[in-house]
């Protein structure tokens, strides 16, 4: 009896906590694994769509991981990729429908990019690499962790691009009108996708210089 209790792992054991936190920094899907860059460029011109995209991806990665983890012993290996795709596609369509019903203006801005969550390789990567071989609870944490790691980078990039590109944050003006009178200008380049790539590059640079573990040997 007592031994059985000891064997049972607590819900937030150090190992499980690490599943949640490591994708946010040391194993970040965007800056370390360099996955999901396409959508990171597309939706980060403003903070609000970036936030909704981040939340959507957290929901989809978490639920897809849970579902695949629950099914993992019954999925025939030969069609496992198809099963994973069906699960992801179904969840993404659900998210898209819900956005259209409850936050129509944001859904209009995101337009095709919600559908493109299906092609976000982070999700499929986590299913194949983690959920296929782990229990439900660790898979949920891993999904949330990776979604958050992706979302965090999206929010940072969205913050910088909206602040310097449009002079607003979350749609509200934050640059005082006086600054424009003395010659301050919004940087139109920030609105364009290449600038997102450059900002992601700067984030990677800062992250690597702070974390010696990430140094690559040449």
């Amino acid at each position: 009896m007592s031994t059985a209790k000891q064997e049972k792992e607590p819900l937030f054991s150090p190992k499980n906590k690490k599943l949640l936190t490591s994708p946010i920094n040391l194993n970040n899907p965007i800056t370390v694994q360099v996955l999901g860059i396409c959508s990171a460029l597309a939706v980060t011109a403003k903070l609000k769509p970036a936030f909704v995209m981040a939340v959507s991806v957290v929901v989809v990665t978490a639920l897809a991981n849970v579902i695949i983890s629950m099914l993992r012993n019954g999925i025939p290996p030969r069609i496992r990729i198809i099963v994973q795709l069906v699960v992801i596609a179904a969840l993404v369509i659900l998210v898209d429908q819900v956005l259209k019903a409850f936050v129509y203006d944001v859904s209009k801005q995101l337009s095709v990019f919600v559908g493109l969550i299906i092609t976000n390789c982070i999700i499929m990567g986590r299913l194949e690499a983690f959920a296929m071989g782990n229990k439900v609870w660790p898979s949920l944490l891993d999904g949330i962790g990776n979604g958050l790691g992706y979302g965090l980078i999206l929010l940072i990039v969205g913050f910088v691009r909206e602040l310097f590109g449009s002079g607003t944050l979350w749609g509200y003006n934050v640059i005082p009108a006086g600054a424009f009178e003395i010659g301050y200008m919004n940087n139109g380049f920030m609105i364009l996708p290449p600038m997102a790539l450059i900002i992601v590059g700067i984030i990677i640079w800062i992250q690597r210089s702070k974390n010696p573990e990430l140094f690559e040997e040449n």
Partner: peptide
């Protein structure tokens, strides 16, 4: 088994999505 699995999965997903829509 593979055929059964795929068919049931597709029908279930279709039902969920139609209901949501």
């Amino acid at each position: 088994y593979i055929f059964r699995y795929a068919s049931i999965m597709v029908i279930l997903v279709a039902a969920v999505l139609s209901a949501a829509a």
